[in-house]
Design a protein around this nucleic acid. Structure first.
Lengths: 191, 191
DNA sequence: GGGATTACTTACTAAATAGTAAGTTTTATT
DNA sequence: AATAAAACTTACTATTTAGTAAGTAATCCC
């Protein structure tokens, strides 16, 4: 053998994540990852016993990502506006990549997952909702945002607009997503 | 053989539809339908050459369903409020059945579908958006609804709230869906 | 009532998928 | 330098999946 790759595990997670967001969890196999990574099927099994273990790790990394994103934005004292912009930007990127958000993708396959993974998905969703709610609450306090609903309700409305907006964009095109995005911002910034 | 079933084809469509909404398109096989229907695998192939043909028929039936639903509601002169209520009710039922809307489910697997099916999905989505927009426009005219956005934008916001609301309910529970549903109605009915 | 058609079944195949066991090479440890 | 551990590969198995070909029973048509 020529050279051994120390970050094969990370690559597997990266490719697996991309496949879930572009094709769906139940639409890819270890063979797809193996082909892209130029390794044998068994190499994936070495790092992750089964597909569900890989999914579990992927969700864990998303939880970590949102934790550090939050930490970082708080560290630099980012405003609610900037924080929300960064958040929305993530969804806009998904549209450009012809992908959907991982939570929306997993929601479709949710009933095929073991309880342990379902619980982790719940943790991730709860975390994201909490962070967005904090941002909306903070933004209302500073006068950056205005809305009538409770922060929790406004968070649910915002999140569902974005998540399904990305899904819709796949089918009807980017324009619909952009319309949704602008409306969200317009409404929060006050009419 | 004992007796032949004249509506096997309809049953296949019914079970296939249910499977897509509960487990996702790429998570079920002909064997799952065959087992539920108590027929052999080849019987499904007799009615639908392949899985994509079945999906195509399922989407066709949804298009027909929305056309006749629209026709029927217009025939009885249903108000915009009643029309929208009927529409929202469909989503509430999905939540109770631990299912998601077929469009949301297919959106996850969208990139694995042949172009012919993608086009049909587009037709279905376009139809639903059109019908909801008509309802919102009519409701605004009669004073039943009030909203600042254009009917098209308001339709996109409403639809994404519902579609992703159903998906979210699967993960975090029905309460979040109910919150979204109430907020949608409250906002349309004017604050 | 004979032939065609419909709606299947039985029986098979080819490929994909998930997974394991055992061996090999590289790197790290002492 | 020897040993252990890490990161694989080769080679295999069992199951699922998609699909086909040929046959059969019931019903339709004239």
């Amino acid at each position: 053998m020529t050279a051994r790759n120390t970050d094969t595990k990370e690559e597997i997670v990266r490719i697996g994540t991309a496949l879930i967001k572009s094709h769906g969890y139940n639409a890819f196999s270890y063979a797809d990852i193996a082909e892209q990574l130029q390794v044998r099927n068994a190499a994936i099994h070495y790092h992750f016993r089964g597909k569900e273990d890989l999914l579990s790790e992927i969700i864990d990394q998303y939880i970590d990502l949102y934790h550090s994103l939050d930490k970082q934005l708080k560290a630099v004292g980012a405003s609610a506006t900037v924080t929300l912009e960064k958040f929305i930007e993530r969804y806009s990127c998904l549209v450009d990549a012809n992908s959907i958000c991982i939570i929306g993708s997993i929601a479709s396959d949710y009933n095929t997952l073991p309880v342990s993974v379902k619980e982790k998905v719940n943790q991730l969703v709860t975390l994201v909702l909490k962070l967005v709610e904090q941002t909306l609450t903070a933004g209302k306090k500073t006068g950056e945002f205005m809305f009538q609903e409770t922060p929790k309700t406004q968070t649910l409305l915002l999140m569902t607009n974005l998540a399904a907006g990305v899904q819709l964009a796949r089918i009807t095109g980017k324009k619909d997503y952009d319309t949704i995005k602008k409306a969200i911002i317009r409404q929060l910034k006050g009419s």
